[in-house]
């Protein structure tokens, strides 16, 4: 479980604390989570939930580790989603300084089971939107208007 199965990375011109605040802000989350809202506890063992734009529970997770402003690890359960059936994946956000004024944001996925292609495609789509939206929000102060499940 120490080596991630999938990693998504973006470099963002911001500071570590600002990005951490965005990443853990329930109020700001719809602006970077394609309209979804997060609910997040403050300590390990606390909840991490993702609610869709319609209020439906998409992720019913749990905080496994929270080390402000650098690391957040979540048990990522997706009730009712066929993609998440029988899976207890872990998702880890890491925020690290890359150089002066730039941080490296990575999302790593840790799986107990082989990763199906459909999961990988959905993950690439979703995380790319999230990383792109966080970068735009940090660097321009304006949200990037992306919708969930929008397919080119």
């Amino acid at each position: 479980m120490d080596k991630p199965d999938l990693v998504y990375i973006a470099f963002i011109a911001t500071d570590v604390e600002k990005l951490w605040r965005l990443l853990t802000s329930e109020a700001d989350s719809p602006f970077w989570f394609f309209g979804c809202r997060i609910e997040i506890g403050g300590a390990a063992g606390g909840p991490y939930r993702v609610l869709g734009p319609d209020g439906a529970l998409a992720v019913d997770g749990e905080i496994l580790a929270i080390e402000p402003p650098h690391r957040l690890r979540i048990l990522w359960r997706m009730p009712g989603n066929p993609l998440g059936e029988g899976r207890q994946n872990e998702i880890q956000y890491r925020i690290e300084p890359a150089t002066e004024g730039v941080v490296k944001l990575s999302v790593s996925e840790f799986h107990h089971l082989p990763v199906p292609d459909a999961w990988q495609e959905a993950g690439r789509e979703g995380w790319s939107k999230i990383l792109s939206a966080l970068k735009t929000l940090c660097e321009t102060g304006r949200p990037l208007p992306l919708a969930m499940g929008e397919q080119p």
């Binding site: 011109a13 730039v102 792109s132």
Partner: peptide, 22 residues
């Protein structure tokens, strides 16, 4: 690629590339 394409996005959205040192 993450460095290059992050820099492309910054350049197009802000007019400024990411710093050279990166």
């Amino acid at each position: 690629w993450p460095v290059i394409l992050s820099g492309l996005k910054s350049l197009l959205e802000t007019g400024e590339p990411l710093p050279d040192r990166l």
